[in-house]
Amino acid sequence: MNHSDRIRRMNSAVMTGLTALCTLLAVGALLIILSYIAWQGIGSLSFQFLTDSPRPVGEGGGIGNAILGSLVLLLLSSVIGLPLGICVGVYLSEVGRGRVGNVVRFIVDTLTGIPSIVTGVFVYAVLVLPMRHFSAFAGGVALALIMVPIVARTTEEMLKLVPHSLREGALALGAPQWRVTLGVVIPAAAPGIATGAMLAIARVSGETAPLLFTAFGSRFFPTSLNEPIASLTVQIYNYAISPYDEWHAQAWAATLVLMTLVLGINIMVRFLTRKKF
């Protein structure tokens, strides 16, 4: 083995080691966060904690209303945001080529970068003020606005990955463009689109800021979409900044629940979008 060969091998070994170290650091940090949350949170978990609504300090209570509230908000924002985002993505990939498409794409990219609290303030201005009260509906809209650009761009990318030959194949059979898009292109990209949707849901399920001035939070179980609603994130925020140790412990437990919820969403969508063909 000559000199330059030895140097090359050494370089290779050092670089491989470096990438492994970086991976270890990143994954390690994540594992530490997860295990710390689990360690801190698991002590306060109980059936009552998961089902009860909050009570004054010293009387226990739980986060049942916040879990339900978060699920309602996620459902609401998905119902509004996913179809909208997917439609924008389809437009960008299949219809809006050229200048208009580029402008839309630029706007969507800009929207992705808007801090979520700005979205919250915006919804506060256009929905909460005219309605004169906070509501689950306003919270859902705020989260949906955050989802739209994420879903739009992932949908676009996934649709662009569908080979052009598939579109030509369908067109050559006498299919009009809308049927090609709906019947061939979107199904071929469905697992990818679902993954994008899942990422968007996971992303907004951790949002706190846009909910502060829209869904606001509540200490009771929700009865209507037209009233303030609790959410895990806002509940965690409120408990974490409180001066009470009991509420701190409950905030940890709620964090653990939130994390499990996000994990659950991920696993569920993975399961639903298993490759059938």
Partner: peptide
């Protein structure tokens, strides 16, 4: 038309052949 690179849809064999008939 038949293309240079085969381009079956990611569907079942039956649905591929039935596609044009359904469309």
């Amino acid at each position: 038309m038949v293309f240079q690179k085969s381009n079956p849809f990611p569907k079942s064999i039956f649905d591929n052949v039935a596609y044009g008939l359904r469309i």
